[in-house]
Amino acid sequence: MKNEITRDVERVVLALDVNGEARQLLVAVHKTLLEVLREDLQLTGTKHGCELGECGTCTVLIDGRPELSCLSLPIQLQGRAITTVEGMASGSELHPLQTAFAELGAAQCGYCTPGILLSARALLEENARPSRDEIREALAGNLCRCTGYTKILQAIELAAERMR
């Protein structure tokens, strides 16, 4: 039952497309996307709450769709577009969702915010005029303990309106 950690860990060269940048790196083959983003690419905007797929905190976009980086292996993601919260703004101009979240107080401790922003962005790209229930459905995998969700819903609606 001992953890056989002492044996050599296989490392692989990965070519990843992260926020539109081509990144090449050598990492242990079993590292999750979450770990590679945070530890190897210093993209610490992606947070984690359980690392077991139960909270949604580590959500990133894979080809525009929200997926959990704690349950993804980078080796399976080569050639696919990975978007993190660091890739939301264009230059120093914030994404309308980011602006709305800031203005309406939709981020309190801010820890679930990156994942929620990305889930919301994917939703708005598919549906420019989501109803409140559609937003709830789309965000139902992202837990937040601070806000009670109200301000998040309002912020997504405000951003959707501004983006139309």
Binding site: T59, P66, E67, L68, L71, S119, L139, A140, G141
Partner: peptide, 9 residues
């Protein structure tokens, strides 16, 4: 099944 991000994967 589960939640939206899990259904995407």
């Amino acid at each position: 099944v589960s939640s939206p991000p899990l259904r995407n994967a």
